[in-house]
Design a protein around this nucleic acid. Structure first.
Length: 442
RNA sequence: CGGGGCGUAGCGCAGCCUGGUAGCGCAUCUGGUUUGGGACCAGAGGGUCGCAAGUUCGAAUCUUGCCGCCCCGACCA
């Protein structure tokens, strides 16, 4: 992408409304624009990161046996009356009527709809397990939206819903999602800790929240700091095999949100030096809730014994849009965002220090073409801005690599290659820089 | 939803108390000089001062109502 053909409205000054660093940086880097309280437009740069995060979630869900689909944002009120949640949900649910006075709602979650779909098509235990997911915009009319995309009213969530023949099978599904979630956040450069949690309005009796430790988080959490060093399962983890050892390893170390915190157990189990009481950002949650929806909505399946029973269900959410905020909270410096490679909006930024200089332009075009061909997704700053603005802008948007090409260096046959995360720079011939950035290279 | 605050150019703000020609910095545009880490000089464009009613000869400024947004708290992916 050429910067002169992109929309990147970076701000030098910090907008007054933004309090926390991720919100400030997202506004300054031209990633989002607020359209109403808790409602944001995703500008091109932010949209690219959103898509990267979606894709990681998709790949790991598919690996763990998930099947992607897409449900609508609008749902019929009557569907929610079946589960009893239409009245129970409260003012957070946005309710509206169409021209025929039919009552609709903008979905805050999709348990009812997926259960309705499931019961329409699936009758036999032979069709199970089934794990359906989608990534769709949700709306929850928060009383006080804040912190940018971390707590918006409209947000993008990946929500998966599992159906199993009995509780034992459902818990194996829960374990698969547990492992998939460890991998999802890890691939984004985040350390997300599964913590015992309350089940909330979704309901059920087994739940973990995935928490990224951060001072700006909204939840108070307690954990054993040894949980930070546990290994993340490899990509070739056998989802058909027994995952219990992995789950036991992660759940045997104390980690709980404030709501379910057990001070006595905490002090008994965790060595004093390992006790960590801090704040965290919730980036996902796992629920097992059995027949909470399948029983009232009559989503039954016929077992091998010929008897009909409600399917055993679970649901598994990832706050996709919230993750941008969480990643920035975890990865930034004074100059701006430092994107983990896997979610960076572009792989490398090319800075042309003397736009209009024939030799300089030619070298930049060579680099741009080569990096694009190598799949490095370059962003070429071909504007004629002068001074340090190009450097500051590139640092702000946080691309992993910067290739800096100017007339002085070219006179000696060299360019500068800068790594954003470490701040390391090296001077080398353009060809070597391109080899170094070539396909498959970090 | 309780408490507090703010709406003036794209962004950040002053002006309001004490009514009288709408300002500053950044950004944008033009011309020139420049060019290696948030350039310089000269010029230009851009505003129904959130909306509505009221008071007044006259309202960004005073009064009332409404709308929007932010912060603290309680609640939530």
């Amino acid at each position: 992408m050429r910067l002169s053909r992109f929309l990147l409205p970076v701000l030098k000054e910090t907008p007054a409304e933004a309090q926390i660093v991720s919100h400030r940086l997202m506004l300054r880097a031209g990633m989002i624009r607020q359209e109403a309280a808790g409602i944001y437009a995703w500008l091109p740069l932010g949209f690219r990161v959103l898509k990267k995060i979606e894709q990681i979630v998709r790949e790991e869900m598919d690996r763990a046996g998930g099947v992607e689909m897409l449900m609508p944002t609008l749902q019929l009120a009557d569907l929610w009356r079946e589960s009893g949640r239409y009245d129970a949900y409260g003012p957070e649910m946005l309710r509206l009527k169409d021209r025929h006075e039919r009552e609709l709602l903008y979905g805050p979650t999709n348990e009812e709809m997926i259960t309705e779909i499931f019961r329409a098509y699936v009758k036999s235990y032979k069709s199970l397990p089934l794990n359906l997911y989608h990534m769709q915009w949700k709306f929850r009319d928060e009383q006080r939206p804040r912190f940018g995309v971390m707590r918006g009213r409209e947000f993008l969530m990946k929500d998966a819903y599992s159906f199993d023949v009995d509780e034992a099978a459902a818990k194996r599904t829960y374990q698969r999602m547990f492992v998939a979630y460890l991998r999802i956040y890890s691939r984004m450069g985040l350390r997300a800790i599964p913590m015992r949690a309350e089940t909330g309005p979704i309901g059920g009796d087994l739940s973990h929240e995935l928490i990224v430790l951060a001072e700006t988080g909204e939840s108070v959490v307690f954990c054993d700091k040894r949980v930070l060093d546990l290994p993340i399962p490899d990509a070739d983890v056998d989802y058909q095999g027994d995952l219990t050892p992995i789950i036991d390893q992660w759940t045997s170390v104390y980690a709980a949100t404030e709501d379910v915190h057990d001070a006595a157990r905490y002090e008994a189990e965790v060595a004093e030096g390992d006790r960590t009481e801090t704040r965290g950002i919730e980036v996902g949650q796992l629920f097992f809730f059995g027949d909470k929806y399948s029983a009232p909505m009559k989503a039954t399946i016929t077992g091998p014994d010929g008897v009909d029973r409600p399917a055993q269900m679970g649901s598994y959410g990832v706050g996709v849009s919230r993750l941008l905020g969480a990643i920035i909270e975890a990865s930034h410096d004074e100059a701006g965002i430092v994107w983990p490679e896997a979610v960076a909006p572009f792989g490398v930024g090319i800075i042309n220090l003397r736009q209009g200089d024939a030799e300089c332009d030619a070298a930049c075009e060579t680099a741009y073409a080569a990096l694009a061909k190598a799949g490095r997704d370059p962003l070429y700053d071909d504007t004629d801005e002068r001074g340090g603005g190009k450097f500051a802008k590139m640092d702000l948007i946080g691309l992993p690599w910067q290739l800096i090409i100017g007339p002085k260096g070219l006179k000696d046959g060299v360019v500068e290659l800068k790594h954003r995360g470490s701040g390391e720079r090296e001077t080398l011939p353009l060809g070597e820089a391109l080899t170094k950035l070539g396909p498959g290279r970090p």
